[in-house]
Design a protein around this nucleic acid. Structure first.
Length: 352
DNA sequence: CAGACGTGGTA
DNA sequence: TTACCAAGTCT
């Protein structure tokens, strides 16, 4: 590490000592060492997810499952339901699988980055982050914040994702041996509050004197990104089947879209194709409203179809369950189907 | 390696 | 309203 790299780390840590965000999963300064369980849980929740969205989920998870052993013993359906609304549901499946692995080794997370990387749901970023934040290891932590800060600091002209190798090399250069966890969190706090995607607050930035983007061009021009592909628009149906104050819910297959989540029956829509219109039982159906929902890789117009018949005999318990409408909020429906349920209940309310 | 994989907030 | 963006991982 040359002198200027040390200057960057020193300036950033000095700024962090004053301006660190107070977040629920962070150890208070001067208090006990961070709890690896809380660090890991928060890092998984924060993957592609905002701090604001994570806070209430983190509080509820640590309340219900205060330790990795407690989480490892949890019912999978309850974990999936507790994750409902947070998105990227493979994270919840991997979370439980990881908890079981860690519980199997005595409830102790490995402190080594490579061993962490081998656990379910821990990729390059999360393994480095947990090694640094929970265990104080020097690890090169690169997330979207760090990519933005570093691409500006060094005016990296190559577009993402190809520039990742160069950005990682630059990050390695400025990462200190001491306080590696604070350094990583400081980079992320800087990216979240000062070195923002739009209108960065360079006048408040502790690194502005070293920033090549600020020197040569507009900082907003970094990071350079490859153009994005168009997002297809799809249409499909969700089926609302009500009986004696309960609605028929199914469990989606373990993998793929909304995998493992409780759901309304649907007609097979996907990112690739519209639904085929096939309902889960024969009989009279009435069209309901439409829910517009945006996924990362496609948009969906979900058309609600309401069953108006009185023969439910073809619905078997192995395929689904009757869920009481007065506790529909506890069903653990992902947001798309929670919206659809809200719409169905609102329409029923208007009629009745 | 490019695509699959959620959702809510912001401009 | 559309588009982009957020502490990525897996295949």
């Amino acid at each position: 590490m040359d002198a200027s790299s040390q200057d960057v780390a020193r300036a950033l840590l000095g700024w962090y000592d004053v301006h660190a965000r107070d977040l629920p999963w962070r150890a208070r300064p001067g208090c006990a060492a961070p709890d690896p369980y809380r660090v890991w849980l928060s890092e998984v929740m924060l993957q592609q997810t905002t701090v604001a969205a994570v806070k209430s989920y983190f509080a509820e998870f640590v309340r219900r499952w205060p330790s990795v052993e407690a989480l490892a013993a949890a019912d999978e359906g309850e974990v999936m339901a507790a994750w409902a609304g947070l998105g990227y549901y493979a994270r919840a499946r991997n979370l439980l699988a990881c908890a079981k692995e860690v519980a199997g080794r005595g409830g102790t997370f490995p402190a080594d980055e490579l061993e962490l990387r081998a656990l379910p749901g821990l990729g390059a970023y999360t393994a480095a982050a947990v090694a640094a934040i929970a265990f104080g290891q020097r690890a090169v932590v690169v997330d979207a914040n760090v990519e933005r800060v570093v691409s500006r600091l060094f005016a990296v002209a190559a577009p993402l994702p190809g520039a990742r190798v160069a950005i990682r090399r630059h990050t390695d250069t400025i990462t200190p041996s001491e306080r590696a966890g604070d350094f990583a969190q400081a980079m992320m706090d800087l990216g979240a509050t000062i070195c923002t995607p739009r209108a960065p607050r360079c006048l408040l930035c502790p690194l502005s004197a070293s920033c090549l983007a600020r020197l040569h061009a507009e900082p907003e021009q970094f990071p350079v990104k490859a153009p994005k592909k168009a997002r297809p628009q799809r249409a499909g149906k969700a089926f609302w089947i009500e009986r004696d104050g309960a609605v028929w819910l199914v469990r989606r297959p373990g993998k793929g879209m909304l995998g493992g989540m409780r759901a309304l029956p649907d007609d097979g829509w996907s990112a690739r194709a519209n639904g085929n219109g096939t309902p889960p039982l024969m009989g009279p159906w009435q069209p309901g409203g439409v829910v517009a929902h945006g996924f990362t890789h496609f948009g969906l117009d979900l058309h609600l179809a309401v069953y108006e018949g009185d023969d439910w005999s073809s619905l078997t318990a192995s395929e689904g369950e009757w869920w009481p409408l007065d506790s529909i909020d506890d069903a653990g429906l992902p947001t798309l189907f929670a919206k659809a349920a809200r719409l169905a209940l609102a329409e029923a309310g208007e009629v009745g």
